[in-house]
Design a protein around this nucleic acid. Structure first.
Length: 486
RNA sequence: UCCUCAAUAGCUCAGCAGGUAGAGCAUGCGGCUGUUAACCGCAGGGUCGUAGGUUCGAGUCCUACUUGAGGAGCCA
């Protein structure tokens, strides 16, 4: 950069001017948070036109630069800017730079506005721009996932999503947890129930076969059959036995043919694991974490939360405040069954000890009986995973599900079976091959301890916090059955 | 995968008992000195999801398929 000796003074002046043009834009968020700092001064802002209204000799443009939920109104007048005609023809979606004085507008809908002295049109928006300044259906917006972040709702959703992710890291880091990146590609073929996505470099049109006629995965990239992970839990348990308190936060893949508003094939999951801890410690951690995330988002994104409360779910803020100010409910599976049996007329499916709770039962518990998040604990061993710790009664395990109104199961977790002989017996009962889990079993052999953990569906938290009712609307580019567009 | 519902202009919808399509918004043009989902006037824009069938005639009735939504199962 400094090698150009032929560049004269004029060149540097131009370069400096160019840099100034780029770098001294003020973020809308700064203006809205500290208007006093900018009032009656010249400011430069850069953003996209959200809506424009024009008259013969003046007009209004609302721009948004993505830094803040609300728009900034810009007024322009004929004679005050040199490109009035072009500016008055601007339509929603165009990108512009604006320079002008920030002034108060007492009595008007907006607190202040910019009186434009200069408007530079950086990118005109084509006339077939699909976003209008009226309400669109979420279904339509899913078909234009590349443009929907420009709408109010998605602007709010994805700013909240970003904040919630940060809140999760802050929560765990402040408490001394170590963030572990567990593998996305996994070789354990019996990691858990659920269909998995295969990972392969084999030519699917000409698969290599062994003598038995089966696909010869020894010729595959990893020399064995591999899949995308459905959970980082087994891997993160190994780090738990070294660091004591750990968590994962990453993408997870399930190839289930699920067609619901709560399931996606690719989603993000948070999985903490704590050593020298039991189910009670586990639930305390889950409750603290959820409250921390909610509180963090409500503090950092009040405008967005107000918007959700007004346009998406008008019970949202009451509900979230209620969660912050009350203790979560606790009930054992056995107690829940007894309670539900008394209300069996309400249900389509029968309630019986040993059967898994149906969605209608879970909803009834959290929405009708408790009216707040509730932990259901100590499920029959027959309906839960092999690694969950067997209770003294010999027929239930130290499992916990957290149910929340509106979303359903948001957390699933357990105390893990740390007794090698009990764990092996359990695996034998279920017909699992212990050789595949040799390293997992080693953890019990080499100084195993009580430990517990859970999985939190990140998108389900976002749904709960925003009131959005479809998981496809809280993931930037959702992957679901028969749909992987963009 | 199962059950239910839907598919009409760029978007949101209307289209009543089968008689070959309408509104609002958006867009274009014109008007308007403070708008705020601005307003007023004019204009362009549709092989009614696809393929069959019934009928003199189908957006409307029937069948299949496709896509989407809601619910269920599975789960986070």
């Amino acid at each position: 950069m400094f090698c150009g000796t032929t560049a004269g003074k004029g060149f540097w002046k131009l370069l400096v001017k160019e840099l100034m043009e780029r770098m001294d834009n003020v973020a809308l968020k700064q203006i809205f948070r500290e208007p006093g700092k900018y009032l009656n001064q010249t400011v430069k802002v850069a953003g996209w036109v959200r809506t424009a209204r024009e008259s013969k000799t003046f007009g209004f443009i609302e721009i948004n630069d993505g830094s803040f939920f609300k728009n900034l109104q810009v007024v322009y007048e004929e004679g005050k800017i040199d490109n009035f005609k072009e500016v008055s023809r601007l339509t929603a979606g165009s990108s512009i730079l604006v320079e002008g004085q920030l002034v108060e507008t007492p009595g008007a809908k907006q607190p202040f506005e910019v009186k434009a002295a200069r408007i530079v049109i950086e990118g005109l928006c084509a006339l077939d721009y699909p976003l209008q300044k009226k309400r669109h259906s979420f279904e339509f917006l899913r078909t234009i996932a590349h443009l929907r972040p420009r709408t109010n709702t998605f602007s709010a959703v994805f700013r909240v999503r970003s904040l919630a992710a940060h809140a999760i890291h802050t929560f765990f880091q402040e408490r001394g947890f170590v963030y572990v990146h567990t593998p996305i590609i996994t070789g354990s073929d019996c990691e858990g129930a659920g269909e998995m996505f295969k990972v392969t470099t084999l030519d699917l049109h000409e698969l290599p076969r062994n003598e038995q006629g089966a696909v010869d995965f020894s010729r595959d990239f990893f020399g064995k059959e591999t899949n995308l992970t459905v959970s980082g839990q087994l891997n993160v348990e190994t780090y738990c036995m070294a660091f004591g308190k750990v968590y994962t936060f990453g993408p997870t893949f399930r190839a289930e043919n699920s067609n619901t508003a709560r399931h996606a094939a690719e989603f993000w999951m948070i999985e903490p694991e704590i050593a020298f801890a039991d189910l009670k410690d586990n639930m305390e951690l889950a409750e603290d974490m959820l409250k921390y995330i909610i509180n963090y988002v409500m503090e950092k994104a009040p405008e967005e939360m107000e918007f959700f409360n007004s346009f998406v779910d008008n019970t949202l803020l009451d509900r979230l405040n209620n969660v912050l100010n009350s203790d979560f409910g606790h009930i054992t599976y056995t107690e829940a069954i007894e309670l539900l049996k008394k209300e069996k007329d309400q249900f389509q499916y029968p309630v019986e000890w040993g059967c898994d709770l149906q969605t209608e039962h879970e909803r009834y518990l959290t929405e009708k009986i408790f009216k707040k998040p509730v932990f259901v604990t100590d499920y029959p061993k027959g309906i839960k995973a092999f690694y969950m710790r067997l209770n003294d009664d010999g027929r239930t395990v130290a499992a916990m599900d957290l149910l929340v109104p509106g979303v359903g199961e948001i957390i699933g977790g357990s105390q893990r079976e740390e007794r090698l002989n009990v764990l092996e017996k359990r695996m034998d009962e279920l017909g699992l091959c212990k050789e595949d889990y040799w390293w997992y079993l080693d953890l019990r052999k080499y100084g195993g301890t009580r430990h517990a953990g859970f999985g939190l569906g990140f998108e389900r938290v976002i749904m709960y916090i925003t009131g959005m009712s479809n998981i496809r609307d809280v993931i930037s580019f959702p992957r679901t059955v028969k749909s992987a567009d963009f």
